[in-house]
Design a protein around this nucleic acid. Structure first.
Lengths: 194, 194
DNA sequence: GTTTTATTAATACAACTGTATTATAAAATT
DNA sequence: AATTTTATAATACAGTTGTATTAATAAAAC
């Protein structure tokens, strides 16, 4: 019987090579040949795991989403004061180290790329739904100020998060972890009860 | 002597065709042939105005920047109460009609594209500098609350603006002009004196 | 009307693209 | 050790890319 290779492992290896190409060279250098080279395999070998480019891109993007989701969920299941937990979860969405910055870069690049491809179900609203849920949760536990407009504050927080994420990615020197944390702590203080 | 064509006008016409290709088809369809077709001219004709693709892209991007800057400056020179003026200027940065949404799309696309090309001087910090100046201005005229951290609030406002801009672009139905205005009014109320 | 030059169109070229096909190498079962 | 199944590699192909070259066309000044 055949030489047996861990399929899922190899696919992840190729997806990671795809990320590296995106981060280091940009989306227009994302070619099957470039990715195969970055992954250290031949073109035919890559095609053995992904028969079309669309399939490869879709897989690579979903893997980023899964990684981020896993990190958030890990925090969500921790035993922590709710406000502290909320802060940690939100901070996880602002890229402040090499790994999460690469993820953010891949994420934004894909968003821009898939906007004009209806074959991808962009699924760009995961973060919004998460923040919406978080805000509802905070309100249910009476942690929010009573006079706030929940829908408005959800959108505002969502804007702060994605804006910070974008700026941390584009200008990591100016928008570092310290600043992001200070801003989020301050913002949460403004919408939460004392 | 020769046939005389308004060079700058024609270049703008081509740049606008470039924008349309970006907005409707995405960056990976931005080819000299596609753009020439969209502009209704021949490939050779396009090359007569832009001898390289890089030149064309650089020009098209700068034109977007100029358009947005002009709109903001027009508001800046209006005779208006300062807080009202600030709101109008900030709202101008959140795309809520077809034209400004196209501009935002072009802008974000270019940012993603030029990140990996050092031959473009990305010049992405224009908005940040503008908001920084606006905040300093508000403080000088004693319109800001006295106990705020100026640097922090500048970064937060900048994040809200770019986050809103991104969301308005990606989900114009949910993040429309009404919502953007409500959020900005509310945000300014929180950092301004009563 | 001729001349001069800007502008346009057409074609060519090498490099690169995604995908397809074919052949070789390797490993597990018999 | 022989066989069978899978993994990898090599090569091919049609289409597209940016750029270059060439010839044709347009318009304005004399």
């Amino acid at each position: 019987m055949p030489k047996l290779v861990d399929h899922e492992k190899k696919k992840k290896h190729i997806a990671e090579a795809t990320w590296r190409v995106i981060v280091e060279q940009g989306m227009e250098r994302v070619t099957v040949r470039n990715i195969a080279k970055e992954a250290g395999i031949s073109l035919g070998s890559l095609r053995h795991y992904f028969s079309t480019q669309e399939e490869l891109l879709s897989y690579s993007m979903n893997l980023v989403k899964d990684k981020v989701t896993a990190r958030i969920m890990k925090i969500a299941t921790q035993q922590l004061p709710l406000k502290e937990k909320a802060l940690k979860m939100l901070l996880e969405l602002v890229p402040t180290d090499k790994e999460s910055m690469a993820e953010a870069e891949v994420w934004f690049t894909f968003i821009a790329y898939t906007r004009h491809k209806e074959q991808f179900d962009a699924n760009q609203d995961g973060v919004f739904l998460g923040i919406q849920q978080l805000m509802q949760y905070l309100q249910q536990y009476n942690l929010l100020k009573t006079d706030i407009d929940l829908e408005l504050e959800t959108e505002r927080l969502y804007a702060v998060i994605d804006g910070l994420a974008l700026h941390a990615m584009l200008n990591p020197k100016r928008v570092n972890r310290d600043l992001a944390e200070k801003i989020l702590v301050h913002h949460l203080e403004q919408i939460c009860q004392v």
